[in-house]
């Protein structure tokens, strides 16, 4: 292992530690935000999901190295995102088109 490579990885390790602290902080913020009444529950859900998406992005980009991956991986993820978004869209769409005789509350 050359000194250059060791230096290169020590730079990466500093970045991993920064992400780790950000994730710890994000977790505490998520818990604290759940105790704050933002007006209605939908707003609380939105805040929690935004924090979760930020945390997930940090894990994906830095721990899973998606910030500097090959095109092939992005290609696979683009398909995954498309189908996942489609699944969620169908779920939400179903609320406006319930089957007959559905009991709604």
């Amino acid at each position: 292992m050359s000194d250059q490579s060791a230096d290169h990885f020590s730079h990466h390790i500093r970045r991993y530690l920064f992400v780790f602290y950000a994730l710890l902080f994000g977790t505490l913020i998520t818990v604290a935000a759940s105790y704050i009444p933002f007006g209605n529950r939908a707003m609380n859900i939105a805040v929690a999901l935004v924090i979760a998406i930020c945390k997930a992005s940090l894990v994906g980009c830095y721990f899973m190295h998606l910030i500097s991956e090959r095109k092939m991986i992005y290609f696979i993820l683009a398909f995954t995102t498309f189908f996942f978004a489609g699944l969620m869209f169908l779920t939400l769409w179903s609320f406006s088109d319930p089957p007959w005789h559905t009991v709604t509350h």
Partner: peptide, 22 residues
């Protein structure tokens, strides 16, 4: 194995607020 493990962590990042907090 690390990529799999990070994915497991990533899923929990969503499960925790959805099931415990909201």
């Amino acid at each position: 194995s690390g990529l799999f493990w990070h994915f497991v962590d990533l899923v929990w990042i969503f499960l925790f607020p959805v099931l415990y907090l909201l």
